[in-house]
Simulated assay, not measured.
Amino acid sequence: MENNYLISVIIPVHNTAGYLRKCVESVRNQSLKSIEIILVENLSSDNSAEICDEYVRLDKRIRVLHLQEAGLSIARNAGLKIASAPYVGFIDSDDFVEPTMFQEMLDALVNYEADFVYCNYVFDYEGKESIYPFRDSGLVEIYPLRDFLRDMMWEKISCSFCTKLFRKDFFDTHEFPVGRLYEDRLVMHEWVLACNRIVWLDKSFYHYVERFDSICHTIVPINRYHFFLSQYERLEFINQHSLFEGKELYDVRTMIIRICLSIFKEIMLRVKPSDFREPFEDMRQKFKKILSLKEGEIDVRCRKRMKGIVYNWPIYNLIHFAFKRKKYSLIIL
Rank of each mutant, 00 (worst) to 15 (best):
T100Y: 09
T100M: 13
F102D: 03
M105A: 03
M105N: 02
L109A: 04
V110D: 04
N111A: 15
D115P: 05
D115V: 08
F116L: 04
F116E: 01
Y118H: 14
Y118G: 05
C119N: 11
Y125P: 05
G127F: 00
G127L: 01
E129K: 15
S130G: 05
S130L: 07
Y132P: 01
R135E: 10
D136Q: 08
D136W: 00
L139H: 13
V140I: 15
E141M: 08
E141T: 08
Y143G: 05
P144T: 03
P144M: 01
L145R: 09
L145H: 05
R146Q: 11
F148K: 02
F148Y: 11
D151L: 11
D151H: 09
M152F: 06
W154I: 09
K156V: 04
S160D: 10
T163F: 05
T163S: 11
L165Q: 00
F166K: 00
F166I: 04
R167T: 05
R167A: 04
K168N: 10
D172Q: 15
D172M: 15
T173H: 13
H174S: 12
F176M: 13
P177T: 14
V178I: 15
G179Q: 00
G179W: 00
L181K: 12
L181Y: 10
E183P: 05
R185C: 10
V187S: 12
M188A: 01
M188N: 01
H189I: 05
E190G: 10
W191Q: 04
W191R: 10
W191I: 04
V192N: 02
L193V: 07
A194V: 06
C195F: 07
C195Q: 07
C195T: 12
N196W: 11
R197I: 02
L201I: 08
D202V: 13
D202A: 15
K203P: 03
S204P: 02
F205Y: 15
V209P: 03
E210I: 15
F212N: 13
D213V: 12
D213M: 10
S214Q: 07
I215Q: 12
I215S: 12
C216Q: 12
H217K: 15
H217S: 12
H217W: 11
V220P: 02
Y225N: 01
Y225H: 07
S230P: 00
S230Y: 02
Q231L: 12
E233Q: 11
L235P: 00
F237R: 03
I238Y: 00
Q240C: 08
H241M: 04
S242V: 10
F244Q: 05
E245W: 06
E245A: 08
